[in-house]
Simulated assay, not measured.
Amino acid sequence: MPLEYASVVRCRASLSTFFSWCVRENLIVHNPVTGVQVPKSSKERTEMHPFTEAELERHFELWAERDPVLADVLLILGWTGLRWAEARALTVADFVEVPTPGLLVRRSDPEGVGRKATKGRNSRRVPLANRVLPLVRELAHGKAPHDLLLTTARGGKLHRSTVLRALAWPMTGGGRRLHDLRHTAACLWLSRGVDPGTVQAWCGHESIATTNRYLHFLGTGADRAGLDRLNRGAGYAGGTRDAVTPE
C-alpha cells in the first residue's frame, strides 16, 4: 500500500539523520539519502466538505433517531474540531469549566496504534459553546476523572466502523467523512467572526496557512462585497457617480 507524501517525507528525514550519524562515525563514506528528492504525489487532494450550521443540526436529528449518544458525540466534534483520534483519547479530567468551559486536548489514540502525543506534539484548549456544553456535561456525569469522556451509550470506546454502521452513515452522512466535522467546526468559528489566529490555536494548526484554507473556502470580505455589487439592479455603476444628480 503506497504511503502518503507526508509520510514518505518523514521517512526520508529519519533515514537521512541515521545515515548522517553513520558518516560521522566513519561507518560509511557518504549519506546515500543526500540529493534524493521525494516525488510529489499526483494523487488528487481530498477536498473538504463541511456542514453548514443548519445542515449539521438536520443531520444531528437523523443520527439521534438511530443512536442519541453517538449523535451527541458527532455534534460535539462538529463544534470543537477534534480529530477522531483526539476524541477517542479524551478523559473526563480533560473537561474543564474554569475559567471557561473547554476541552484540554493532550493526547491522541489512533485506532490500531495506541495512545500517543497529539499531531504536532502540542496540547491545546478547545472551547465548548453553549450548544454542546450540556451534552459534554451529560457524557461526563457519573464517570471517574480517568474514564473516557466520549463513549458509546454503554461506555465503550469509540470505533469508527462501529459508529458509521450504527448511524447508517451512507444514508445520514450527507456524502461527508467524519473528518469533515473538524472542517465544519473551523468554518463555523470563522463564519461567526472568530479571528484566524484564534482558530489556528483551537484547531492546533502548526501554520496559519492551513487555517487560511478555510478562509479561502468561505470566501473573503472582498468576495462578498463583490457579489453584493453583482446582485444589485441592472445599470448599477457604483462608485462616486451614485451621488451625482443628472443636470
Rank of each mutant, 00 (worst) to 15 (best):
L230C: 06
P2S: 04
V98S: 11
R83V: 09
D223C: 03
G142I: 10
W63Q: 03
L75D: 13
G221I: 11
D195G: 08
R176L: 02
N31W: 15
V23P: 00
G233F: 14
A144C: 08
R165H: 11
M48Q: 13
E111V: 07
Q200D: 10
R137M: 02
V96P: 13
R124M: 01
A168S: 14
N212R: 07
W202S: 03
L167D: 03
R177N: 12
I76M: 01
G35R: 05
T152E: 04
G238Y: 01
C203S: 06
G204M: 11
D72Q: 13
P110D: 00
P50C: 07
A93I: 02
N26P: 11
C11K: 14
S7P: 10
A185R: 09
V23T: 01
T17H: 00
K40W: 05
L148F: 07
T52N: 07
D147I: 05
L215K: 01
W84P: 09
P99I: 00
E247P: 15
E247F: 15
A185N: 06
A93V: 05
G239E: 01
R176Q: 05
S108D: 04
T17Y: 00
G197T: 15
R115V: 14
M1L: 13
W21K: 00
G226A: 04
C22E: 02
V29D: 08
A243F: 15
A168D: 15
A234W: 13
R24F: 13
A85N: 02
V105F: 05
V33D: 01
R192K: 12
D109T: 10
A54G: 11
R154A: 12
A117Q: 05
A144H: 03
A64T: 06
P196N: 08
R58M: 13
A168W: 14
D94N: 06
T162P: 10
H183G: 13
L148G: 04
I76P: 00
K40I: 01
V126I: 12
R12V: 01
R107L: 03
V9D: 14
N26G: 12
P170Q: 08
L135C: 00
A201K: 15
L148N: 02
R177V: 09
H159I: 08
V38G: 04
E65T: 03
P32Y: 03
G173C: 04
E47G: 06
W189I: 09
W63E: 06
D195N: 15
G78S: 03
R137N: 04
E247R: 14
R83F: 02
P39Q: 04
V92M: 03
